[in-house]
Amino acid sequence: MPRETFQQELDRLVEEVLELGREIESCLGTMVQALETHDTEVASRELGVDARYKERGAEIDEECLVLQARQAPVARDLRLVYTVQAVTNHLVRAGTLCEHICRSISETADAERDSDLETTLLEMSHGARDLFRRGLDIFEARDIDRARDLEAADDKVDLLYSEAMNLAVNPDKEGIGSPEWRIRAALTVHYLERIADHGVDIGACAVFLVTGERIESAMRQYRDRNLDQYDD
């Protein structure tokens, strides 16, 4: 097949993204573990990873730029380069949020906690990690039929988000935790929700890569078509 070198460069690019993705996935695993065990040592293992992720992200971006300049990719190649850049962005951002959470854990180790809020938060952390992993799996396997399941799973995380925020704002009278912990917990809830969204978006990127169609616009077109039928 012609353009073998170009194909190798594209394959290498995807490998790099997946490598970075798996590393961040493992970082998320560590974060969940630290949340469960309140182990500051585990949490502090991930402090500083953010800078490394950003650097790797910038390298991948650079490679995409050079590939575009030298190879003028079109069609599926263009979609791949574009998708690689978009996915990398989601990965790096998720990695940054994960580091924030680990920092928060390590700095509030001895703080007094609200057990209800903490339970919700833990459940949310599992949901966010799973969504991220599933998004990455879908991107790796280009299995777009599974991408739509992500939305439903994200609904669950969003529900937990509402619950956690309500608990944060309207605590019970007793055992409400220290003010600092409450604020950190609220931020963590927000970060987890964002991580879950990045997972969903990575899945949506895979849909674009395979079909050239934006998942949102496909949804919109589908809905518009239904509305037209009602008008008739």
Partner: peptide, 8 residues
């Protein structure tokens, strides 16, 4: 579900 391929 949206039917991506058809819409495309």
């Amino acid at each position: 579900e949206p039917r991506w391929r058809e819409v495309n």
